[in-house]
């Protein structure tokens, strides 16, 4: 009797969930979309994903769910996203590690396992020093290996500069900007390369001084700071974020997604959010985003093979 009851409950639940999921084909999207964020809730990538999701929902007409799946510097989340059914209902957030990790053999999947949709921002590396070193000449500093740097291992920002100058600085391995900023402030290292947003409070207060930015053009957030290119060192590197779908997602679906997310990204509300969080907006269409990643791939491979 009891066993029958159990069986009955099970059958009831199975049928409910089967009916609920539905099977008909209709115009995309007909149910909610998931974005796998390969970093923890509350971080920068997560914040961008949640913000764009909020603005894209009206354009897609379906709710967007954020799933944080962290681990391996992003590899876990991307591996999961690459395995997802390529139907446009599972997307993922990209960050520089999607290119870097597979070069370093630390991730089973790379950007080639995905179709890019849109790039949102690109925050160039900004070389910061403590107040007492404000008068240092940045070119001299980068050409003199007595100055110590603090950065993540491998420090792609510093490697990019070193590829130009040929001078190898001692680079003390630190975690994120939350560890690097105090290390510079406390005088434990001479300089660090961070994103402006990560050190804005200290820069505004004059405790940290930005000496140069690693971008093509000067940054709106710190317009008085020269680019390294102006100073004769052509080193550009940034930390960027974008959206992608698993490889094999139909072209029409990618087009619908690109259109909707581009509209969302161009809304004033999203732009205001990006400005407040000091993320440097740099939209790239699906095709441009792909080319951009290919360039990054070539440059990084060259850098690491040295």
């Amino acid at each position: 009797m009891r066993k029958l009851l159990v069986l009955f409950i099970c059958i009831a639940l199975v049928s409910v969930s089967v009916f609920a999921s539905g099977t008909k084909e209709a115009a995309f999207p007909e149910r909610n979309i998931q974005i796998i964020v390969p970093y923890a809730a509350g971080g920068g990538t997560d914040a961008v994903a949640r913000a764009i999701a909020q603005f894209a929902e009206p354009h897609l007409g379906q709710p967007i769910t954020i799933i944080n799946k962290t681990g391996g510097g992003g590899a876990v989340g991307w591996a999961e996203a690459a395995k997802a059914r390529p139907d446009g209902y599972t997307l993922t957030m990209f960050a520089p590690n999607i290119v870097n990790l597979s070069i370093m053999n630390l991730s089973p999947v790379g950007y080639k396992e995905f179709e890019p949709i849109l790039m949102f921002n690109n925050d160039p590396g900004t070389i910061v020093v403590a107040k007492k070193n404000a008068n240092l000449n940045v070119v001299e500093m980068l050409n003199d290996n007595k100055y110590k740097s603090g950065g993540e291992n491998p420090n792609f920002y510093l490697l990019t500069i070193q590829a130009q100058t040929g001078v190898i600085h001692q680079d003390i391995p630190y975690g994120g900007a939350a560890e690097r900023v105090p290390a510079v402030l406390g005088g434990h290292v001479d300089f660090a390369i961070v994103n402006v947003g990560e050190a804005k409070g200290q820069i505004d207060a004059g405790e940290l001084v930005p000496l140069a930015v690693m971008s093509e053009k000067r940054l709106d957030a710190v317009p008085n700071v020269p680019t390294l290119k102006e100073l004769g060192i052509d080193a550009q590197m940034g930390s960027w974020r974008g959206l992608a779908a698993p490889k094999g997602t139909p072209k029409e679906v990618i087009a619908i997604l690109e259109d909707a997310f581009t509209k969302a990204a161009n809304e004033q509300g999203f732009k205001d959010f990006m400005k407040k969080a000091a993320f440097n907006i740099d939209f790239k269409s699906s095709a441009d985003f792909w080319t951009f990643m290919e360039e990054q791939d070539v440059a990084t491979t060259k850098m690491l093979s040295k």
């Binding site: 009891r2 009851l5 159990v6 409950i9 099970c10 639940l13 199975v14 969930s17």
Partner: peptide, 30 residues
């Protein structure tokens, strides 16, 4: 089979295993 069915099954299994006789508990809890 997903979270709901598996967890209903687990809870039912435990209640049987713990020899819970009360019919209301047997149905409501899982």
């Amino acid at each position: 089979v997903g979270f709901i069915i598996a967890m209903v099954a687990m809870n039912v299994a435990f209640l049987f295993y713990f020899k819970v006789k009360n019919k209301v508990v047997l149905i409501v809890e899982p």
